[in-house]
Amino acid sequence: MPDMNMIKSLNSALSISLKDNPNVVIFGEDVGYFGGVFRVTEGLQKEYGPHRVFDSPLAEGGIAAIAMGMGLNGLRPVAEIQFADYIFPAYDQIVNEIAKLRHRSGGEFSAPVTFRTPAGGGIKGGHHHSQSPEAQFTHTPGLKVVYCSTPYNAKGLLLASIECNDPVIFFEPKRCYRGPFYGDPHNVPTWNGHPDADVPEDHYIVPLEQARVVREGSACTVIAYGTMVHVAEQAINDSGIDCELIDLQTLVPWDRDTVVNSVKKTGRCVIVHEAPKTSGFGAEMSASVQERCFYHLEAPIQRVTGWDTPFPHTTEWDYLPSPQRIAEAIKKTQEE
């Protein structure tokens, strides 16, 4: 079986959902005839017809609202927001409406909607094609928030998200669509030959709410998600320190047990994300780890994140957490 890149594996998940469930519909800007600007929905309209896979008007607020309406009336929409940076016109619909529908209606109504959206930097996208806005959704009760990192977990997590009866914001690290990113912009590998590109053709689930231990280790726990999983892996290799690397996969509800057990074992913790530090998801993890692991911690928890600034264009490699910065943080945890 040939390896799949993340675009192919996501496409496979969508195709399986369409095939298995007649109530699944897919829409968003340019997703129909053209198959999406990142080609994730390529071929699906042709195979499943224009009523199930269609181009929507250019209005994210409309997309979100229509998805909610469809979702509460029996369908299972999978809507694409072309870039996570463009999810904000839909923010009111997602945060005030979709997220609260089940609760505010006393459980009478709910909408099983999945929003897929490419996020993160590393493509010279400047302010508005690079952001990683997960924290703006993890702070909203009622939403599940997922962030995939490899072709394998992308497919399994997307199928789990679509099958989930709660609304899911599904972030796809666009820098990793065609290959992993190890923090060196001049090194552009494909997924070919990567163990996580060995993706089954058939249906499978990577369960939500479960983190993935990418690499076991004893000296320090490194937690990351999305593109930063690969950058952190590189940093760990560079540091020569025996770290345990955890790919969070689901941010809400997150797999606190896996993280806490790991930190109890290693006594050290480094948290990595490319979103800004202030009120980033790392703050939540750091606080929880401190609450649960205080007596096991041998060193202060380190956060390596994007800066508290807009995402730059030309200088993006100085913005994104680099293997060097992560390795330094790991070393810092070893000092005492």
Partner: peptide, 11 residues
């Protein structure tokens, strides 16, 4: 046109 989406598909 809006990228690949003709105005006929969007209004």
């Amino acid at each position: 046109w809006a990228i690949s989406t003709h105005a006929n598909l969007a209004t």
